[in-house]
Amino acid sequence: MVLLMAALLGACGEDNGVDYCKNHYAYHSDHLASLGNLTIELSDAGDLDGNLSLPDVVLHGMADDDVSRIFAGAENTFTLQTEATCEVGVQRFARTAEGLEATFEANCGPDQKIGQISVALFDHLEALEELVVAVTTPATSKRFGISRQCDGPIFRLE
């Protein structure tokens, strides 16, 4: 019965996209150069620090003005849903020959719960195929990949 169900599921389901996402660890090392990297750190004091680095291939063909327009507004990159009004710090970004480095800061105050961090980078950077994300909270830390080709996060990268 189990084998039958497995066969049925196999026959109905897995297209190449799903297979790519499920077995992503097998391909991941081949495309490291084209990935964006995002780290988000949340502290007990309510500080949020975000660091983003994107390879030039992601920005390829984009004029500096377009890049500035995207990264000048926090709503294009990070937005927070919190119980408190967070003090949003200055976002810095710099475009170099290698790509782009950006930082984002916010302080929501101690004991203020951040309910959600929304990341809109994929909406604004069409060439961004995959982002490797590391998030550290006071309780835990997770590292995962977000790919345009996959419905959910990829927890096994290597």
């Binding site: 719960k113 309910g115 959600q116 961090i117 929304s118 990341v119 994929f122 909406d123 998030v135 909270t137």
Partner: peptide, 12 residues
């Protein structure tokens, strides 16, 4: 706490 990545119509 959720970290939500929007990608057009879908989210992760």
């Amino acid at each position: 706490m959720k970290v939500v990545f929007s990608m057009g119509d879908s989210t992760a």
